[in-house]
């Protein structure tokens, strides 16, 4: 009976420890979100979204150029990364047999674990050195490289879920294979692929490290591909490590904007997946 009681106590204790661990893991999340919301909301104003950054010491100003810059960078990354990633995924799902396809799959998996700062160095030596200055293009390429493995593997996984009977139906209608792939297979897998791309974009939008020495930063508006450009994450970093109270306030506000953007994209992707699950 004593042994039984001891076992019982250990069982309850261990289960309590697991619950405690879960609560402990939730604490930082709650703290981060609470601080971002409370301090961020305090720093928000209309001019925050519309004005350019002010020089040190002057009150007011905003991060409008950084918000727009982030959108531009993510846009460039999508234009470059999504078609390549989707086509590579199509290759793996529709044509990919043998050693080459295995190598591609492996490369994509390994690449998703490479630190983003290493991607930054790669793009720096590839583009910034040869162009002789920081540029929006370099930043976009760095984000595109980061998105590439996710988009590729998501596309492959989702196209593999499309039943072969649909491919057969298309081919039997006398449709060339490439059209069957694009208009039937890809179209059927499109909602899921969109979810995957959205998650990849959400991740890319929050990346800072690879932008530090590719897109760099810019105090002004920029619409040029070959000029440095501001972005929200880099702006948050710059403001956070600065010694100025006003900039700290803006860093929190910018963090709130970034977190809301990223979490909205994540939630959107999840809703998309779930809606699809229900309709089937």
């Amino acid at each position: 009976m004593d042994a039984y009681r001891r076992r019982k106590v250990i069982d309850v204790g261990a289960r309590a420890a697991c619950v405690a661990a879960t609560l402990l893991a939730v604490v930082p999340l709650v703290s981060v979100l609470a601080y971002v919301v409370v301090r961020g909301a305090a720093g928000l104003s209309w001019s925050f979204f519309t004005a350019l950054p002010q020089p040190v010491g002057e009150a007011g100003g905003g991060v409008a150029n950084a918000i727009l810059g982030s959108l531009q960078l993510v846009g460039i990354a999508c234009v470059l990364g999504v078609p390549v990633g989707v086509l590579a995924g199509i290759y793996l799902a529709e044509y990919g047999r043998g050693r080459f396809a295995t190598a591609v799959r492996y490369a994509a998996d390994v690449m998703s674990g490479i630190p983003s700062i290493a991607v930054g160095i790669f793009v720096y030596t590839l583009l910034v050195l040869s162009m002789r200055h920081f540029s929006a293009l370099a930043g976009g390429v760095a984000l595109a490289v980061l998105m590439l493995p996710t988009v590729t593997r998501t596309t492959e996984e989702l196209l593999k879920l499309v039943p072969d009977s649909l491919r057969e139906a298309g081919l039997a209608l006398g449709v060339p294979r490439w059209r069957v792939v694009l208009k039937v297979v890809l179209r059927t897998g499109a909602p899921g692929i969109a979810t995957g791309i959205m998650l990849a974009v959400a991740r890319a939008a929050g990346e800072t490290a690879p932008l530090l020495f590719t897109a760099f930063n810019n105090r002004f508006w920029s619409a040029s591909l070959v000029e440095p450009i501001a972005s929200l994450p880099v702006q948050i970093f710059t403001y956070a490590v600065s010694p100025y109270e006003e900039w700290h306030r803006q860093a929190w506000a910018a963090a709130l904007v970034l977190v809301v953007l990223v979490l909205l994209m994540n939630a959107g992707a999840r809703v998309l997946t779930r809606a699809r699950g229900r309709s089937r």
Binding site: V84, L87, A107, A118, T125
Partner: peptide, 25 residues
């Protein structure tokens, strides 16, 4: 043929990006 080639090229791009990263660094 064109489509197959384009897809294979993009797939190669994934491998090339990883290898290129190593070589460039």
């Amino acid at each position: 043929r064109l489509f197959h080639g384009a897809a294979a090229l993009c797939a190669f791009g994934v491998v090339a990006a990883l290898a290129g990263m190593g070589v460039e660094m």
